[in-house]
Design a protein around this nucleic acid. Structure first.
Lengths: 205, 205
DNA sequence: CGCACCCGATCGATCGGTCGATCGGGTACC
DNA sequence: GGTACCCGATCGACCGATCGATCGGGTGCG
């Protein structure tokens, strides 16, 4: 039943999944479903709690020692491996927060914030120590997490890369992202302004 | 009415938004709503079509000339600026593809694939020319796009960064990500294996 | 009049969730 | 051994509410 909910929530979204869909996938009647579970939201909340708690546990065991470079490398590897190993869990956890009622959402958000703190402090420490050169550390955290979480949306185990290889590539990219060579801007200010102008034409305020 | 649909789809998702929600937000009755629009799905499809077409148009004007570095810089800037300027459009376009029926989904997916080709060919050209050093170009494209699209989920115009500043930071990070210094692995193979072991304990197959 | 605009009322279908009833396998007492 | 009792598991039927969508009938302006 948990499996059915996981698959359907990931595939169609929480609001796109009816309890009759759940019952059919589990091979039960809707009444029997309610013998085992609470509400539909409870089902979603459990999935998200489990997902976040495991990630937080792993981050706590690997994100607190060593150099900032090592910490980011380990956090990235864990995050990518987890998203590759459990794409359904992580996709639901990343996409369906808005479907939760306010109290549960607050609980899950608190877990997520705690997890992201591991990343932020590793980035900040790296900037302080000079290992990282990045102009906006908070933006870097958001960009990194978004990029790593995306794995769950497209990774397939039968593709050209194993999960370990994929994680290694992400570690390389994450560290490259954090050690920006700011010597020469890629676009001169004039070209950048041209882009701004094009955008304000296409997407007028 | 378009505005109402845009706001509500972005806020609650397609399946989480009812016709009566749309009518109330637009200050109309549900019947009047149907005087102007087709089905609810048509509304979603229009939002996604507009969003993708503009992005594709912008990419066509900026992603085809210059060095790979310049092309990626311009694509990144356009993408980030668009997502910062129209977060609702882009969030809906990124998150609600699965809510579309098969034919419309195929159409939107084709547009998206065409757009992503601008990115992929710029990355591939840069790898060929030696400007970029990245072990898995396809993965790099996915990572870059996911990271840039994330902007729509959290950027607020009244925050510490203007949209132009944000785009400049993203250009730096994107180019850093694509020019990985592969000299020394951040984690020795033993440490990487420890991570793999931890993950297989926490997320058993 | 004709047409664009707008509405209350209502449609059949489906929603999340509950109801009372039934079934089969213990288990405790005589 | 028989039997009276209990209980978790399961079901079809059904609840009120809401879903997306439609209807016929207004208005008011050209």
């Amino acid at each position: 039943m948990r499996t059915a909910a996981l698959e359907l929530f990931a595939e169609r979204g929480f609001h796109g999944t009816g309890i009759r869909d759940l019952a059919q996938r589990a091979g039960l009647s809707t009444a029997t479903l309610y013998h085992y579970m609470g509400t539909k939201e409870d089902l979603l909340a459990e999935i998200m709690r489990d997902s976040m708690r495991l990630l937080l546990l792993a981050a706590g065991q690997t994100g607190t020692f060593g150099t900032p470079t090592e910490r980011i490398a380990r956090l990235t590897q864990i995050h990518v491996l987890a998203h590759a190993a459990r794409p359904l869990h992580t996709r639901v956890a990343d996409d369906e927060i808005r479907a939760l009622s306010a109290p549960v959402r607050a609980e899950i958000t608190a877990l997520r914030d705690e997890y992201e703190d591991f990343w932020q402090s590793a980035i900040d420490d790296g900037v302080t120590s000079g290992e990282f050169r990045v102009a906006a550390p908070t933006v870097a955290r958001l960009a990194l997490l978004e990029m790593c979480s995306g794995v769950a949306r497209w990774y397939r185990p039968d593709g050209p890369l194993t999960a370990s290889e994929l994680a290694a590539r992400y570690v390389e990219m994450a560290l490259g992202l954090l050690t920006v060579d700011g010597a020469a801007p890629a676009l001169d200010p004039g070209a950048a302004d041209d882009m701004n102008e094009l955008v304000s034409e296409l997407w007028p305020l």
